[in-house]
């Protein structure tokens, strides 16, 4: 009984409960048909939201005003870079992945450079950067043969016993991220900065370096996500990352991370990503129109944040 209670006290459990309820509602509607397939599909799609969600989570945890709006443009450009470097050639997969990672990390580093040098709010810095990245992508991606090598596409879609391999790898990655958050100097420093940046500085945290690392990390995760997306969907295009701006922020918030900063939650990102993907599946199964789907998604985000409430500033 006490274990159930302590489980319910975890902020991330609610997103998993939500995902479960949505899944149950959907299979009740279909009469149990396609229950397993739905989980497989949800896991495959949730992976991409989780990867960028974790990056966004570290950024948001840095405190109010910190957010990475350049993720969609970043994903788009990195997917094009990866596909161009791989050039349909299986032997170039690793190099292509590295290129996407480097491209994303460079974008993240450039974001922080703007924030630091111009002392502008991250929201405007990453926004201006995303305008520029978008243009680079449009002009660079034009006329490219933008198909992944067959080996890479197969890898991105590979399943073992109905479980996508990418999902397993991503679970391992998120476990690493959770450990980094709670047990490494980097994670502790991010949490300290998010609670009180001045106090963190005065307690000896290297604020500039930690913020730089965090934006770079978010960028790098966006880059790798772009490459994987292009592999999974067997092709890159400029708009491939568009839905991940809202999705990355939404999974962080629904997952129980505080928008006020200083309190982060890695498992919640998984729960929220599964919840959002299953919600879309459910609405599609129910056959509602695109308009209703958007409307309900929006209302649920507003509803969740209202229920979670904002943090009152402690006196």
């Amino acid at each position: 009984m006490t274990s159930v209670k302590s489980l319910l006290a975890k902020p991330w459990i609610w997103s998993f409960i939500g995902a479960l309820l949505v899944w149950l509602a959907t299979i009740a509607f279909t009469g149990g048909y396609g229950a397993g397939g739905m989980v497989t599909a949800a896991l495959s799609l949730a992976v991409f939201t989780v990867i960028v969600g974790v990056g966004q989570m570290f950024v948001i945890t840095l405190g109010p005003g910190n957010v990475d709006l350049s993720l969609p443009a970043n994903i788009g450009l990195a997917s094009a870079v990866a596909m161009k470097v791989m050039d349909g050639n299986d032997s170039m997969i690793a190099v292509g992945l590295l290129a996407a990672l480097a491209c994303g990390a460079a974008i993240g580093a450039a974001n922080y450079l703007l924030i630091w040098a111009l002392r502008i709010p991250p929201i405007i810095a990453t926004l201006s950067a995303s305008f520029i990245i978008q243009s680079i992508d449009i002009s660079y991606g034009r006329g490219l043969q933008i198909k992944p090598p067959p080996g890479f596409a197969d890898f991105a879609n590979w399943q073992i016993l109905g479980i996508p391999v990418l999902a397993i790898l991503t679970v391992l990655f998120t476990i690493g991220a959770a450990i980094a958050l709670q047990r490494m100097i980097y994670g502790r420093s991010v949490l300290a900065i998010g609670q009180n940046i001045r106090a963190a500085w005065l307690a000896g945290v290297n604020v500039g370096r930690i913020r730089f690392l965090t934006y770079t990390l978010s960028g790098a995760l966006g880059g790798i996500d772009g490459a994987l997306l292009a592999g999974y969907f067997r092709g890159a295009n400029v708009d491939i990352g568009n839905e991940y701006l809202l999705a990355s922020i939404a999974v962080v918030v629904i997952g129980g991370t505080s928008v006020a900063g200083g309190k982060a939650n890695v498992p919640g990102v998984w729960g929220a990503a599964l919840f959002l993907v299953l919600l879309l599946t459910m609405l599609n199964t129910f056959g509602v129109s695109a308009g209703v789907r958007l409307l309900l998604t929006g209302l649920i985000i507003v509803g969740v944040i209202t229920a979670a409430g904002g943090q009152k500033a402690p006196r």
Binding site: Q195, A199, G262, P314
Partner: peptide
């Protein structure tokens, strides 16, 4: 409050 404590 402003220079020392990490409230969480």
């Amino acid at each position: 409050q402003s220079d020392g404590i990490f409230p969480q």
